[in-house]
C-alpha cells in the first residue's frame, strides 16, 4: 500500500534527489515548519501513503520518521535531522550550511523543494515522471471533501496571517543570506586561491627581472594590431586550442601579465579590448564534449560538433580581435 516517491531539488536548491519508501515502522512525514503541517509534507504523505505529523505538537521516535520537512535558513534545523540520519527536505534554498554542515550530504538532504518537485518513483533525470499534481488520489477525491478542505484551509489562513507575513519575510531574507553564503564560498574556494597563485607568480616575475624580458619581447607584439591577430590565430589552432583552454588558467595568467604591461605604459591602453579577445580565442575548446553532453547532445552531434567549434575558432579568433579593435575607437 505504500508508494515510492522521488524528491528533487527545486530551483536554486541543493542536494538530492531522495528516493523515499515508507515501511510498516517508518511511515511518518515530520513537518517542522513553524507549526501546522506544511502542504509539501501533506503532499508527500498523500503520495506515499504515509502519515503527516506536526513536529511542533508531537514528538516521534526517530525510527518512525520517514522524512523531515523543515524550513530552515541554514542555522540549525537543516543539519539536525541529517545528523540523526533522517532524510531531510528543506523548503528554503539552503545548501551545505550552518554549524552542522558536515552532516548535510546530497544523499540525505535536498532543498528549495516545492510541491512540483515531488515525483512518483521511476525518476530518470530532468523532469520525467508525472508531476505530483496529477496523482490519481487527487483527481478521484470527492468534491465535497475538497470543499471542506478549502474551507479549512482558508480558516487557517485567517488565523495565521502574521505567521504568513513572518514566513514571507524570512524567505526573502534567506534568499539574500544564501546568496551571501554562496558568494563567500566561491571567494574563499576559487577566487582567493587563484589570486594567491597569480600574485606569487607575478611577484617572482617582476622582482627577478624576468618582467623586463617579457616587456621587451611580448609587449611590442601586443601593441600592434597584426601582432594581436597572430596571437589570436595561434591560440585558435585546433591542435593548440584544447591544450590552452583548461580552466582558462593560461588566459588568466597572460591577462594578468599583460595588465602589468598596460600599467607600466608598455602597451597603449586602446589595445586593452582587442587584447582581451586575442588571448582568449581558445576559450572552452577543451570542454566541447563535456559542454555538449551537458546540453544532452547525441554522440553523433558531439562527433561533428568538436571539429566544427575548433575549426571555426581559427577564423573567428582573429576576426574577434578586429571587431574589438574597431569598437575601441574613441575609448582612452
Amino acid at each position: 500500500m505504500y508508494k515510492t516517491i522521488t524528491v528533487k531539488a527545486g530551483s536554486n536548491g541543493w542536494g538530492g534527489p531522495l528516493i523515499l519508501t515508507p515501511t510498516e515502522i517508518c511511515n511518518k512525514v515530520l513537518s517542522v515548519t513553524g507549526g501546522g503541517i506544511h502542504p509539501l509534507a501533506q503532499k508527500i504523505a498523500d503520495m506515499t501513503g504515509a502519515e503527516a505529523v506536526d513536529g511542533f505538537k508531537t514528538n516521534l521516535p526517530d525510527e518512525e520518521v520517514l522524512v523531515a520537512v523543515v524550513d530552515c535558513g541554514g542555522t540549525a534545523r537543516c543539519g539536525v535531522y541529517p545528523k540523526k540520519g533522517i532524510y531531510t527536505i528543506n523548503i528554503e534554498p539552503v545548501g551545505k550550511a550552518g554549524p552542522l554542515a558536515k552532516y548535510i550530504t546530497p544523499e540525505i538532504y535536498v532543498s528549495a523543494v516545492t510541491e512540483k518537485d515531488v515525483y512518483e518513483s521511476d525518476y530518470t533525470g530532468a523532469a520525467a515522471g508525472e508531476p505530483a499534481s496529477k496523482t490519481e488520489a487527487e483527481i478521484s477525491r470527492p468534491k465535497q471533501t475538497l470543499k471542506e478542505n478549502t474551507a479549512k484551509v482558508s480558516e487557517e489562513k485567517k488565523e495565521n496571517i502574521i505567521t504568513k507575513i513572518g514566513k514571507a519575510v524570512g524567505h526573502f531574507v534567506n534568499i539574500f543570506f544564501q546568496a551571501g553564503r554562496d558568494t563567500i564560498e566561491i571567494v574563499l574556494g576559487t577566487i582567493l586561491p587563484f589570486m594567491a597563485f597569480t600574485a606569487t607568480l607575478l611577484g617572482i616575475i617582476s622582482a627577478s627581472g624576468l618582467g623586463n624580458v617579457i616587456a621587451k619581447t611580448i609587449s611590442p607584439i601586443c601593441s600592434t594590431l597584426p601582432g594581436m591577430v597572430v596571437i589570436a590565430f595561434i591560440c585558435g589552432i585546433p591542435i593548440l586550442s584544447p591544450v590552452l583552454g583548461p580552466g582558462a588558467v593560461i588566459a588568466q595568467v597572460v591577462g594578468t601579465l599583460l595588465g602589468a604591461e598596460f600599467a607600466l605604459g608598455h602597451i597603449p591602453p586602446q589595445y586593452a579590448l582587442p587584447a582581451l579577445f586575442a588571448i582568449d580565442a581558445q576559450v572552452g575548446c577543451d570542454f566541447v564534449p563535456v559542454g555538449l553532453s551537458l546540453g544532452e547532445a547525441d554522440p553523433e552531434t558531439i562527433e561533428y560538433g568538436v571539429p566544427a567549434v575548433l575549426f571555426e575558432r581559427m577564423i573567428t579568433g582573429p576576426l574577434a580581435v578586429l571587431i574589438a579593435f574597431a569598437f575601441s575607437i574613441g575609448m582612452y
Binding site: 566561491i186 576559487t190 577566487i191 587563484f194 597569480t198 580552466g247 582558462a248 588566459a251 588568466q252 595568467v253 597572460v254 591577462g255 594578468t256 601579465l257 599583460l258 595588465g259 602589468a260 604591461e261 598596460f262 600599467a263 591602453p269 586593452a272 587584447a275 582581451l276 588571448i279 582568449d280 582612452y332
Partner: peptide, 13 residues
Amino acid sequence: GELFVYTGIATGI
C-alpha cells in the same frame, strides 16, 4: 572562477 582574463587587464588599465 575565471575573473582574471578581464580583471588582469582591467587592473592594469
